[in-house]
Amino acid sequence: MKTENDTLSPQQSLDLIASMINQAKGNLRDNSFYFLFWGWVIVGCNLAVYTLLQLKFEAPYVVWIAVLPAWLYTYYFGAKRARANQSTTHLEKVNAVMWACFGAFAMTIPFMGQFVNYHINPLILMVGALFTFTSGYLIKFKPFCVGAVVIFGCGIASFFFDHQTQLLFAAAGIGCGYLIPGYLLRSQKDV
């Protein structure tokens, strides 16, 4: 590419700008890791707590401690990828900040359980659905938007059931609304 003394016409300048902006678009495949990883962590934790409750285990909610190493691994993976990546798009940054905010919400709400009659799972599902929808919209991938509606529906429905059944709603909601779109995203970008 030339630098000095190259006469660009206004149209050539605009074409160059459009072509470069097009080249700077992010790689959606990279995002599928987060959806699949967290999808399995949340589905796994919900089903594990449900199973332990069925087995009359004394402290089934201890399973949720698994979320802490999952956050650490996500942070480690994200930092490693940021170092390896040659560029970061604005959308990637917004997406990362948005899910970090959701993490703060999801970590805080269990301590407020008494104020919401311990309907923690439905609330996390509903708020998680909003973030999933926004993520889908940002990366222009409709299955996540549809999945978000499924998660939101599961969140609302689970208000009407006992805490044990809510775990199944959460696993089903995340499985259908988060994991399936995650795999679709990965398969689409692998082609």
């Binding site: 630098t3 190259d6 660009l8 470069m20 902006i21 700077a24 970061t88 798009t89 604005h90």
Partner: peptide, 15 residues
């Protein structure tokens, strides 16, 4: 200028 404009166009789209 072709190269500087290309760089600026890339950077305006990226963080």
């Amino acid at each position: 200028s072709q190269l500087r404009l290309a760089v600026m166009s890339l950077l305006i789209s990226l963080d």
